[in-house]
Design a binder for these strands. Structure first.
Lengths: 213, 213
DNA sequence: TGCGGATTCTATCGCGGTATAGAATGGAGC
DNA sequence: GCTCCATTCTATACCGCGATAGAATCCGCA
């Protein structure tokens, strides 16, 4: 097993992607220069091109890095046990949780992916759409089960919920007192109450979903 | 009244700002070139500099254009008559309404203002903070009046609500069936229910807010 | 027709940014 | 020590963009 250089390269490649994520997150794709990324790594600008063949390729790498796992975990929540309300709360928590140590990647994915050329933008966008669908399916299941309001517009509610969560990525870390737990708690409460069937409330909520025969 | 050239110039200046807004909205500040803006207007790139002295100045102009009135109207809603719930619904509607014909300006304000140099960014940011405060005050008034949940974290709820509304600017016009009225309706319902005091519901909500004096 | 201000033009400077070519370095294993 | 390969380097081509200078044009009005 004379493998040694390969893992080293892999590790360095991950560092490179992380550096790109950080710089893109800070200055935006067009505002960031390859020189900036090189500075973070302590190497020369031209040396970057050993790791990616263009700036756009670096952006795609950052955007794709992690979202796969992201979507997979959301799907697991959807398929898992629990009421629709439980799942919604889990989704919100799960959506926000990764920001603790991967905020850069999330921000770049959210705010810079539209700078990608068509082909890779579509590749990346597929994940976003799949994620939305999962979210929406949870809401629809809740409506079908009578947990959520029958007249709920699941599509727009989904986009609203995701948008609310995403927006927090802009001020998390800046807004004092806004920990991830607190944000997730407030948002989950807001959405759950906002979505719930009017009559069954708190008092009867414990017994689960009835109504709908 | 020998005024003729002055109004002409004014009109052209507004067109220039609108062109900049459109281009910045489409490609992002750094992704847009002054040439792109000139193309929209059908003039030469250098001719733009008759209207603004730098690209950054154009961005600031776009960002400031209209937000003053925006904040003023929100303040009017806050000070006006009605329950906190009414006001919240009005705020949501008012927040989304201008997108019909001024979507570019809003998008640029939301997504590009961070590219401004410090001085103008602070000038622009002041409006955003004032707007947030208005929104938050309405929520706090609702809590004080007993309309909204006592345990509501008004700060985070405010940021969440605004974030939800703002996010819609990204997909309004793309998402089929998502008219402004529909979006506003769904969001308002979501937020109102999410914020309301558990006991008093629908039935007693119409009688409005008393209690407080 | 000619004045004068507003507007747009041509021409160009100079910088900074992406990307390529090919040489140098450095460490693991024979 | 020598080889091989990964990694990083130096040097540079190339171009697009923002901005300036100053001339030309357009137009209302006396």
């Amino acid at each position: 097993m004379p493998r040694r250089a390969r893992p080293a390269r892999k590790r360095r490649a991950a560092e490179t992607t992380a550096a790109a994520a950080r710089v893109f997150a800070e200055r935006g794709y067009h505002g960031a220069t390859t020189q900036d990324i090189a500075d973070v790594l302590g190497i020369r600008q031209a040396s970057l091109y050993y790791y990616f063949r263009s700036k756009e390729a670096a952006l795609e790498e950052v955007c794709l890095d992690g979202v796969g796992a992201y979507v997979a975990r959301a799907a697991a929540i959807m398929r898992g046990p629990g009421s629709a309300a439980d799942k919604l709360a889990q989704l919100v928590r799960h959506h926000i949780a990764p920001w603790r140590d991967r905020a850069d990647f999330t921000r770049v994915f959210l705010r810079e992916r539209h700078n990608l050329p068509d082909a890779s933008r579509h590749r990346v966008g597929r994940y976003a759409r799949r994620y939305e669908r999962i979210f929406q399916q949870v809401l629809e299941a809740g409506v079908a089960a009578g947990e959520f309001r029958r007249d709920l517009d699941c599509r727009i509610a989904t986009l609203g919920a995701i948008g609310m969560c995403n927006a927090a990525s802009a001020w998390y870390g800046v807004e004092p007192g806004a920990t991830l737990e607190r944000i997730a708690g407030v948002f989950a409460a807001l959405l759950l109450e906002g979505v719930r069937t009017p009559m069954m409330r708190r008092t009867s909520a414990r017994s689960g979903a009835r109504r709908r025969g």
